[in-house]
């Protein structure tokens, strides 16, 4: 059954500019698979090389984070709205093995 998936602003370039997309699935996992099949370039942004959702990708059904409701197996009955929600992290230092910290800057000039 179709569910509505809410797409974060920068990913709308992969969904023909749409803020929401329809996906078929009776679980969050199958709905996201269907979404990724419809929009292959979107898949690369959501999934890593290990075929798992990237660490910063969070999925909500309504107001519930699926980490608390069964993950990808969270059932859908077609009335819910599924949202893709990024988390953000960063900082100036990385911690090396042994507990030492070092600054590590990385950037490229503008193309």
């Amino acid at each position: 059954m179709p569910v509505t998936v809410r797409i974060p602003t920068p990913l709308r370039s992969y969904t023909d500019g749409q803020s929401t997309a329809e996906a078929e699935g009776d679980t969050v996992g199958t709905a996201l698979d269907d979404l990724a099949e419809q929009y292959p370039d979107l898949r690369e942004q959501l999934y890593g090389e290990d075929d798992q959702l990237r660490s910063f990708v969070n999925v909500y059904v309504g107001d519930e984070d699926i980490r608390h409701t069964g993950g990808a197996d969270t059932p859908l009955d077609g009335d819910e709205e599924v949202s893709i929600v990024p988390a953000v992290a960063g900082g100036t230092w990385v911690r090396e093995s042994g507990g030492r910290k070092r600054p590590c800057l990385v950037a490229a000039p503008a193309p």
Partner: peptide, 17 residues
């Protein structure tokens, strides 16, 4: 620290755009 992104920023940044 300078206003330049770190490897941590790069590794943990979400989507392009």
């Amino acid at each position: 620290h300078p206003a330049r992104p770190s490897e941590t920023d790069l590794a943990e940044a979400p989507f392009p755009g």
